[in-house]
Structures are given as structure tokens and as C-alpha cells.
Amino acid sequence: MISSLDRSRIFVLLLLAALALLPIVATIGGEEFYIGQFRRILIFAIAAISLDLILGYGGMVSLGHAAFLGAGAYVVAILVHHASEETRFLGFIPGTFEPLIAWPAAMLVSAALAFFIGLVSLRTSGVYFIMITLAFAQMVYYVFVSWRAYGGDDGLRFRGGDTLAGFIDLGNDVVFYYVVFAVLLGVLYLGQRLVKSRFGRVIEGCRENERRMRALGFPTYRYKLTAFTLAGAVAGLAGALFATQESYISPSIMHWTRSGDLIIMVILGGMGTLYGPLVGAVVFMLMEKFLPDYTQHWQIVFGPILVLIVLFARRGVFGWLLPARPGGGGHG
């Protein structure tokens, strides 16, 4: 018999293999459309995985994660915009077309934003935390809605910024797909190391019982803030990839419903599993894409499916394959 641990491992390998082969199969089948579609899915999977780090592992229900996604996206858009206009951001920061500069810059800015939002938000917990992260994200949203220099709520269209390291052409659908796929694998690997490390234990301990953690001698706030900042940075990277993919960015990327989508992906796939959010992103975005073909009231179908999953597979689609962990209720 195959144990449930092996079952989940096989499932992950199959899923990753399928994603690795997708551009080849799509090209042969003449359905290139799917390459861009799935690249978008993988980008959101990266964002969902970063959210899982704080939501699934850390128990921090942030309803503002899209702000970090959006900040990262705007960093790339603004840098490329200034590079093509040959002007400077705030009069002194030059733009750049190079993703190897723009993407890390996006991570840095999103990390800094997450740090400051976390600094205040993590003083609270429970519903207050949900509301305060939402409030901060809305503030960021309205900053960009009203920032006329970068298109306001019409958004900002830009050209260029799609040649990586001087020779990798991200304008090529397949090449860019594999770049995103490589980033995803990197995020999964580093995430896996992180959650098993001492730091990961502390984060999980905070989810289980933060009061006890403090009594054991952990300054929990610092650890949670670090996790929150790291998650923000990775979400910023996803945003950067998104901007590069779309060559267009508007504040809708950081609308609060987008944060909700990310939470749904994590819950749908399985909180605290890392691979779950990848599954969740695939399932969520395919349903979002194809259910409307059957009915314009697709959300009437989608809603009950979500409810059923939450009721019957409390650890999501992926968690369902994992060995049961007692005591932890929904996750573990």
C-alpha cells in the first residue's frame, strides 16, 4: 500500500512534471494560449505560497497581501517607465529595463512595506489583525489610484523590461514561462527549508499557541514580523513577474478582493502545506477562467464548491492527500 506521505509526494512530482511539460505539449497541440494562461497561474501561485507562509504556518490572517503584490508590480512598471522616458523617479532614482535589478528592487520595496505594515498590524491579532491589514492595503490602493503620474486608476502601460540579464528574451512566451517556473521551484525549495528550520518551528508555534511561546522565552513579535516581511518580499517578486508579463499595471492588482482571492487559493489548496497553494492557484484560476464559459452566474457554482471543500476537506485539496495531523484542527 502507498502511504499518504508517498501519495502526496507522487502527486507533487506529477504536478510539477505536468507544469514542466506544459509549454511543449501546448506548442505541439497548437494551443499556445495556455502558456500565457498558466504562466499567470504560476505567478499567482508564488503569491499564494508567500501568503501560506504567514497564513497557513503563522496563523496570521492577512487580508492585505495584494498590497505587496501590487507594490512589487508598480516598482517594475515605474522603473521601466522612467527608463523609457529617460527621467528619474522622484527626480533622483534612474529607471531600468533590467529585470535583474527591477525584480530585486520590487522585493525590497514590498519587504519594506510589509515591515512597516507588520510593525503596526502584528500588535493586534484575530479580527483586528484582519481589519488592520485590510485597512493598510486599502491605503496603498488609494495612493496608486490617485497617483496621476503613474496613470492613476487608468493604470500604466509600458514597453520593454523584458530582456533578462541582457540575453534571455522574456518576450518569448515559452522562455518566460520557464523563468517563472524556475522562480516557483526556487520559492518552493526555500519555503520548504524555511518551514522545517528553527525559524519555521517558531512560526508554527506562534500559530498554535503564542502565549505559550512567550512563556517559553520567545520574543514572538520579532519572529512574526520577520515572517511577515519575508512573505511580503516574495509577494513583491510575484508582482514583479506579473508586471513584466502584462506590460501594464493598474491599481486593480491590489484591490482587496485580490487579497481575498489569494486567501481562497491557500484555503482551497490546503493551508500550511506550501504545495497546496500551488494546487489552489491552479484550481481557482482555471475555474475562474472556464466556469464563465458555461454560465455567467459561475460564482453561484464556485461558491458552493468552496463551501464544500472547507467543510469536507478542511486542509484543502492537497491536505486531503497528506497524513492526518491530530489536534491541529484545520491545519498542521
Binding site: S197, R198, F199, R201, N209
Partner: peptide, 30 residues
Amino acid sequence: SVFRAFTALENVALALQAHDSHSFRFWKDA
């Protein structure tokens, strides 16, 4: 108030970890 989802061993290991310098260690499997 033990950590219910953790094994007994993990519970005690976490307590030990609390007093073994800081836990900003991201790489090694605890």
C-alpha cells in the same frame, strides 16, 4: 497548553530551542 499538533518530542525541542541562542535560523532542519 502544550502544542497539540506537535509531537511530545517537538514540544520539548521547541522549549529547548527557546533558550539556545536566537531562532533566526532558516536553513537547517530542526
